[in-house]
């Protein structure tokens, strides 16, 4: 009950202080606390009842662990993303090879400034091997190796 002429802000402030002490009392396992006489008795009863009846509910352990696993996965993914190239940049650098035509091989992408992950290395490695198999090298040592293979095969026949 608010008496006519009473400032609602002052009443609200008194209530707030009472709630502070009520909630602190719960930590001390005290059932009630001395209150400002200006606070209505019904309001004190309501506050005490809410303190008692609005219980905390804990999520299930299963949910907790499932979400923890998902967050860990998201955290790992977000840490890998920049390492795979987001922090670096792909720049085309002209490289002229001594025994290969410049118009075909002139530009090779390089990763600069970013940390290469093992995954990125594996993909790049697989791509390089596939490309290399499709295009035999014209370097003198490679030519000699191919020549040796061919002559070994001819002798075997």
């Amino acid at each position: 009950m608010t008496f006519p002429g009473r400032d609602p802000d002052v009443d609200a402030l008194r209530t707030d202080r009472y709630l502070d002490s009520l909630l602190a009392a719960a930590d001390r396992r005290a059932h009630d606390v001395p209150a400002d006489a200006a606070i209505d008795e019904p309001l004190r009863r309501t506050a005490a009842r809410l303190r008692r009846d609005l219980v905390r509910v804990h999520p299930s352990f299963r949910f907790e662990e499932r979400l923890a696993a998902r967050l860990a996965h998201e955290a790992a993914a977000s840490q890998l993303a920049p390492a795979a190239g987001a922090e670096g940049s792909v720049a085309a650098i002209p490289i002229t090879l001594d025994d290969e035509p410049a118009e075909e091989e002139g530009f090779r992408p390089l990763l600069i400034g970013g940390a290469l992950t093992s995954a990125a290395l594996s993909i790049a490695g697989a791509a390089y091997v596939a490309w290399r198999r499709a295009r035999p090298s014209r370097l003198s040592r490679a030519r000699a190796a191919r020549q040796r293979d061919r002559s070994t095969a001819a002798r075997a026949r």
């Binding site: 609602p8 609200a12 707030d16 019904p42 309001l43 009863r45 309501t46 809410l50």
Partner: peptide, 16 residues
């Protein structure tokens, strides 16, 4: 503070 104070008053009327 005013929100909570008013809420307590209306809850009191509902629960008393």
């Amino acid at each position: 503070r005013v929100l909570i104070h008013r809420a307590l008053k209306s809850l009191g009327r509902e629960l008393e």
